[in-house]
Design a protein around this nucleic acid. Structure first.
Lengths: 120, 120
DNA sequence: GCCGAATATTGACAACCTTCGATATAGTCG
DNA sequence: CGACTATATCGAAGGTTGTCAATATTCGGC
């Protein structure tokens, strides 16, 4: 009940958002939620998000991400693109470098959708 | 904050739990988290969880789940097994019927892991 | 304008996932 | 016991995913 206002905010948001439960989720929203979860459901991508989140300004350069995850540069780029398309990261180029940054609230919003069931 | 006690519970729990961020997640925990997320990252399984969660006692019989999702009985059984192995549902047989029930706190725990980034 | 460096895209391949029909298992009621 | 019903398992088909090497693109410096 603490979340009533948040919930409404969230409902006004882009492409999602009303509780996962109580009323059963409809097929379209399930599809949408699944797409976001799928973007996170990979160990490498979780590590990328985590590293970015722990970096200065919640932002990191591709060149700093390749070595920690131990995969090829194209593979890392691929994962970053998926995370961006799912709305978890945003990209900004500065010179030759590409910086990926956490989209504020994206993880929290997803988290709330899952939490609803648990919080009642 | 209402959930402080839950949080400690959860921290004492099986195979997970410390923030997704600040300290970067290690490969093992990423693997583990990814496995759970992957179990949820399917539209059909989200709908199954949702229907179960919205049912009396957060529990539903397989026979009641087949028609709503519109897939074959073996397919539904398969998805339920995945959700069970990931720790989101538990099964209890009563006579010929199999009842799947939400595991209390499982979704909430996952939710918290994601939320950490957002909450700081 | 050209060269080198950082990132993105493409194409290919193996592994895995979702789904189904067919079949096996387990439990109920005559 | 035997037929029926509910659920699980198996095997196969088609689609999707993660990964890499090779290549394209974009940008800064000489």
């Amino acid at each position: 009940m603490l979340q009533v206002t948040d919930v409404t905010d969230v409902a006004a948001d882009a492409d999602c958002c009303t509780p996962l439960t109580r009323e059963t989720i409809d097929a379209d929203r399930a599809e949408d939620l699944a797409r976001k979860l799928k973007a996170l459901a990979d160990p490498t991508r979780l590590r990328l998000v985590s590293i970015v989140a722990a970096s200065e300004g919640e932002e990191a350069c591709v060149c700093d991400l390749i070595e920690p995850v131990g995969l090829s540069q194209p593979t890392v780029s691929h994962h970053l693109r998926i995370l961006m398309e799912a709305g978890f990261l945003s990209r900004s180029k500065r010179g030759t470098w590409a910086y990926y940054k956490l989209v504020p609230g994206a993880l929290g919003q997803l988290s709330q959708l899952l939490d609803v069931t648990a919080s009642r």
